[in-house]
Simulated assay, not measured.
Amino acid sequence: MASRNLDADFVRSSLEDRESLFNRLMQKHRTGRKKFLLHRLTVASRLSCGAADRRAVGDHYERLIVGLQRSRAGEDVTGLLLLYPQHALHVIECSTEALLSVLKDLRHMEENSGLILDPRILLVSHDLPSRLFQHWNYKLLDESDSRQTLVSDEESPEKLVSHTLHQLLRLGCHLYNKTQQITGSKTIPDEVLKDATDAVPPQAAVCRLLQMEALLSPERYISTYHSPLHQRLDSESVWPAVEHLQIV
């Protein structure tokens, strides 16, 4: 009987060791994949420069993206920057580390009155299965570049955010089909958007989005991202209460 118990303990111990090793390998695998996860960041903002100087914003992000890709070989940064006369919409697809670098750059510009003012995050989509944008490009827009020049004040904030994101997805799909026409150029030719003007969010929509208090700034998002989760553990919710179990 003692021998059987020893054998059972040995088998149980061996299985626990195998499970522990498996868990360690899976944890190592997950840790190794983190930097290759694909995220999509969508940001609205105001421009501090005039309409004639908007190329400086495009040049700034081009330098930032080139630097990120050089420091992280194999991790491309793709997306689209729409530069209106007074506002901007930026969609960036990148890894976790690159995403944090872009957010920190936005925070730095906001704190130091840089090219971008009052940036607000519309959406961050995590762990995407594939890219929508094959390159990073930017486009200088005028008011006439969008058919929808008016935005109803009665439209709810949730619907406005959803409609703007839907337009950006449609625009991304359109550019995906026009990949050959924009390959090798950072700026999008005018003829590429001729058939997709209704997919370009109007500047009036961006202006309204920036008035929504619910949208997080880069500073608040980074702070929330790094804050620990204060969740109540199951062990803290027991009955009877711990103080009732104390022996007097």
Rank of each mutant, 00 (worst) to 15 (best):
H135V: 00
F133G: 05
T183I: 11
M212T: 05
H163S: 10
E16V: 06
L209H: 15
K186T: 08
R70K: 07
H60P: 01
V242D: 08
D118Q: 13
K34R: 12
S71N: 04
H87P: 02
P240L: 07
R40V: 02
S48W: 05
N112S: 11
M1K: 10
R12F: 11
Q27L: 13
T149R: 15
L140V: 03
L165A: 02
L100D: 02
D195R: 15
T31H: 10
W136E: 02
G50Y: 06
R12N: 14
H29V: 09
V200N: 04
Q203F: 03
L15S: 12
A214I: 06
C94Q: 03
L64Q: 12
L64Y: 03
L141R: 00
C173F: 04
R18F: 08
L140N: 08
L83Q: 06
A205K: 08
E110I: 00
L115G: 00
Q246A: 10
Y138K: 01
H166L: 06
A205D: 10
L128M: 11
L229N: 06
Q181W: 07
D145Y: 04
Q181R: 12
Y84K: 01
K28H: 12
N5V: 03
M1W: 14
I222R: 00
K186W: 12
H126D: 06
S223L: 04
E191Q: 14
F22V: 15
